[in-house]
Design a protein around this nucleic acid. Structure first.
Lengths: 107, 107
DNA sequence: GGCTTGGATTGACATTCGTCGATCCAGTCT
DNA sequence: AGACTGGATCGACGAATGTCAATCCAAGCC
């Protein structure tokens, strides 16, 4: 990936911003480690002591950024981690990526 | 709720937030790809068409978050990428990390 | 000393963002 | 149909953030 850094920066920043809040990092982590890689809203609500509307708001931001995907199955909403988005950021931060020196691996 | 993740989430979110702006992603990338892994303010100012105070502000945020480090050498300020910070995020996003399924690599 | 330059800090402003109660909507059950 | 439930959306509020001009400070030069 050469210097289309301009475009990548916008994309990466959008994803980074979505993860720029501790609760949202925890949410993504929780969904990720849930059996089947997906969790319903009710499960997540049990884990966090915050109003339901706040939780829904943070999930919406993650969905809008493309970090999570939402699917309504019957009564419940299910959330999954979009691995492509995580992969995008991982590549940006990986050794040799735009933000990381290729020679500075795991010091 | 996983308490060990709590601490990590706060740290990770602080770094993510610092990178949650396109200009700052570009700044880090520019510093990283500069000869010697460090760039002075004047070099960076040449690359971006924005007021000097704005640029300084964004750099300060990156420094405060620990993504960049600043060193005043004589008249000029030099910036370097803190590889430990980038490494922290890379590990969070790496396959097997808190946000990434170990089995879901590059689907 | 006074002048100039690189760049950090300040202050004001508008915008965005997080928080949370209140409301609304879609499924489900009776 | 009406009642109930899971969750999304709305609205208001305060706090944080980006932008930029103006100012200030330190280092070099006359």
């Amino acid at each position: 990936m050469p210097d289309q850094l301009q475009l990548d920066a916008t994309t990466a920043a959008r994803l980074f911003k979505a993860l720029g809040e501790p609760i949202r990092v925890e949410l993504v982590g929780l969904v990720r480690r849930t059996e089947g890689q997906e969790a319903c809203f009710c499960d997540l609500a049990d884990q966090f002591d915050m109003p339901q509307s706040s939780l829904s708001h943070h999930l919406k931001i993650l969905v809008q950024a493309g970090v999570l995907s939402r699917e309504r199955r019957g009564t419940w909403s299910w959330y999954r981690v979009d691995n492509a988005a995580i992969d995008t950021l991982a590549q940006v931060l990986a050794p040799g990526g735009p933000l990381r020196d290729s020679s500075a691996c795991c010091d």
